[in-house]
Simulated assay, not measured.
Amino acid sequence: MMTNLFSVFDPSAIFNLSLNWLSTFLGLLMIPSIYWLMPSRYNIYWNTILLTLHKEFKTLLGPSGHNGSSFIFISLFSLILFNNFMGLFPYIFTSTSHLTLTLSLALPLWLSFMLYGWINHTQHMFAHLVPQGTPAILMPFMVCIETISNVIRPGTLAVRLTANMIAGHLLLTLLGNTGPSMSYFLVTFLLIVQIALLVLESAVAMIQSYVFAVLSTLYSSEVN
C-alpha cells in the first residue's frame, strides 16, 4: 500500500545504500556487442541511429565546432534514452525522474560551455546579451532578460525531462491502482488505455532524450 502517490519514485535502501540507482547501468545490456564476426541487424540499426545523430549534431555545431564534440551529445542521448526506457519496465527504478540525475547532467555541461565561452570568446558572449537591432533605450532590459534566460537553462533542461517522466508514470500508476475496484468490462477498457499510454510513454522517452541532447548541442554551438 502506497502511503504517498510519489512513493513510486523513491529509491529503496538496502544496507543504507540506494541500490535502485544501479538501474542506470542496465542500459549497458541493451547496447549491441561489437565483437561478432558478422554484425547483427540490431547492431546495424543502432549504428545507423548513431550515424544519423552524428550528422545532425555536426550540422547544429557548425563549422566552428571541434572535431569529435558531437560524440558527447550522442552518449548523452543514449544514456537518457536507455534510462527512460528502463523505467517503463515493472519494478525498475526510473532514475531520470529525479532532479539529482538530470541536474547532474545539465549543470556541468552548461557550466563548462559558459566558462569556455567567457574565457575564449568574451566579446562574442557580450554580443549575445543584446540581440541585433535592439533600440538603445531597451538595451539594459534586454541584457537582464538574456542573462536570466541564460542562467535558467540548466534548470529548464533538467525540469523538462524530470516532469515528463514523472507525469507519464504517475498517470500509469493512478490508472493501474483503480483496476481492482472496477468491473471486468471496465478493466478490459482500462487495459487498452494503459497499453495506449505505454506506447505514448515510449514515444516520450525517445523524444525527451532527443530534445535534451539537441538543446545541449545548441547551447554548445552558441559559445563558438
Rank of each mutant, 00 (worst) to 15 (best):
L50Q: 11
P11R: 01
K58H: 01
S70A: 07
N47W: 03
Q132H: 10
L60F: 10
T48W: 14
N16I: 06
L37C: 04
L53E: 09
V143D: 02
P108Y: 05
F15L: 10
L19C: 10
N47T: 10
N4L: 00
T100L: 02
S18I: 00
S104K: 00
L61R: 11
L37D: 14
L81V: 04
L88D: 12
L61H: 08
N20C: 03
M139T: 06
F77V: 07
L99E: 07
L101S: 02
C144P: 00
F113P: 03
S69P: 03
I14L: 03
N120C: 06
G133M: 11
P90S: 10
I137C: 01
R41Y: 11
L107A: 14
N67Q: 15
L99N: 05
Q123C: 06
L26F: 04
M2S: 14
T122C: 05
W36C: 05
S7A: 14
P135T: 08
G87W: 04
L53T: 15
S69R: 13
N47Q: 11
P39N: 07
W110G: 01
I80T: 08
N43H: 13
S97T: 10
G68E: 11
I72M: 06
I44C: 09
L51M: 05
N43G: 10
T3V: 09
T59K: 14
L51C: 00
I119V: 13
I72V: 11
M2P: 12
G68R: 11
T24C: 05
K55N: 09
P131S: 03
T52A: 15
L76F: 09
L76R: 03
S75V: 14
F77Q: 06
G65T: 12
T94R: 03
S40A: 07
D10V: 04
F126K: 15
M139C: 02
L22Q: 09
L17P: 02
F9S: 04
S97W: 00
M142Q: 13
F89W: 06
I92Y: 00
W46T: 12
N83S: 12
S97Y: 02
L60Q: 05
V130S: 01
L26G: 08
M125N: 13
H54N: 13
L79P: 08
T102K: 01
N84Y: 01
I72L: 06
L22R: 05
P131W: 06
S64K: 09
H98F: 03
S78A: 13
F82Y: 12
Y45C: 08
P131F: 05
N83M: 14
Y116M: 02
F6T: 15
S23R: 00
G117M: 07
P108V: 04
T102Y: 00
L5D: 13
L105I: 10
Q123W: 04
F82N: 03
S69T: 13
L50C: 09
I74L: 05
A136M: 07
H98S: 12
P135K: 00
L79Q: 11
L129W: 06
S70L: 00
K55M: 14
Y91L: 09
Y42I: 15
S40I: 11
S23C: 12
V8E: 08
N67I: 08
S33A: 15
N67V: 13
G87A: 10
W36Y: 10
I49T: 07
G68P: 11
M139R: 10
